[in-house]
Design a protein around this nucleic acid. Structure first.
Lengths: 205, 205
DNA sequence: TGTACATCAGTGAACGCGCGTTCACTGATGTAC
DNA sequence: TGTACATCAGTGAACGCGCGTTCACTGATGTAC
């Protein structure tokens, strides 16, 4: 229903407010993001934002949910592309840098409703890609957490400007550089009865 | 000069305010930390805090400086204990968890004065321990960044509650678990003709 | 030893501001008959 | 087809609040002579 002179009903205000929130975080910072500012950016009264999300935490919950969904999608796409686990890690860093508005909210659970069902589901979907399994065993989980921690560390250090300049300005390159130091094969400490699962050849750097 | 009924002059107000700020961050969260609240906690007028730090960013700068100094000290102590590089990484995670009031401020440079000379110096001292060198070559830097990223990732994922429950509640144990997947030897790929470039010390970021 | 004076440390009141939330409301849309 | 009514979507004013900063000030301390 396209119309001139802004119709009374927006039509897609909910997603528009989420977009506005993300954009605000990206160019003003999370601390400067307010309900009122987001509504202003979307060209709507601030009470409209409250109507759709209940409160500020509700808006940020919606941002986090959407962020986890997009991240899960990005990881899945990379997974299916078949370039190997390393590239899934690189995709994590790429997402964080390209969508830092989402990323910064996703890891601040004190700002939203952490028990929101949609949130838990979206986050679980993301985790499944990081563990390469829906029901990871101890080894898969340890490996997954190591890879996740490494890439999360690269992403956050990069985002807050703590990467030393000599490493260059390409976060994906840094991700590949450090990933080369990660051993993603299960630790082969002799555990009687534990059969090392067949594993595809590790992609070289 | 101990005295009854609170003397007009506090005597050690500056460090007391830093302590109060850290304590506030630890039990109310960084977003809820205000100059006025910190002064209140220290039992002093809020204008006194402004007097000592200039503004809110000044207070947070002082917190970050003190945090980097303490972190550098903790890493150095662990280094000198001679338990190996892995335990230096574990010490990083231990610091983050034990002193999250400092830690959370240290990595939010948009909240303080990032060019403060004392800050740059304290941060450089921390970095030197992570690279195991004041003048790291490319390999040392890559290895150091990998280790730093990994431990930083563990610390931040732990602090914001994103570690899956099956991993238990001991962050140091998780740090050791994931560190086992890290290869800290320099990558010995033959790079003919690649001379480690002369590197001038670039203080700070 | 006393006295004057500068400096340091902290007070308390005032300022303007943007915030999140609430509320009664209006405009627009969908549905039952 | 029309009409009544319920529901959805958004408005605008008002609320109380705590915030960071500024300012003229006072109390305490140190130093020069």
């Amino acid at each position: 229903v396209a119309s001139d002179s802004r119709p009374y009903h927006h039509g897609h205000l909910r997603p528009a407010l989420i977009d506005a929130a993300v954009a605000t975080v990206e160019d003003q910072g999370l601390a400067a993001m307010s309900l009122r500012g987001v509504a202003r950016r979307a060209g709507v009264s601030h009470a409209a934002a409250t109507y759709h999300f209940g409160d500020k935490a509700g808006l940020l919950t919606a941002v986090a949910v959407e962020g986890y969904r997009r991240l899960a999608g990005a990881l899945q796409a990379e997974d299916q592309a078949g370039h190997g686990y390393l590239e899934v890690g690189v995709a994590y860093v790429r997402f964080a840098v390209a969508h830092r508005g989402y990323f910064e909210v996703m890891y601040r659970p004190e700002l939203f409703h952490p028990q929101d069902p949609a949130l838990l589901q979206a986050r679980a979907a993301t985790a499944a890609h990081l563990y390469r399994s829906d029901q990871p065993d101890a080894d898969q989980m340890a490996t997954g957490i190591a890879a996740w921690s490494l890439m999360h560390g690269v992403a956050t250090l990069w985002l807050n400007g703590n990467m030393p300049p000599p490493l260059g300005d390409d976060p994906e390159a840094i991700a590949r550089l450090v990933a080369a130091h990660l051993d993603v094969t299960p630790l082969a400490e002799p555990r009687p009865g534990t059969q090392p699962p067949a594993r595809e050849p590790r992609p070289g750097t």
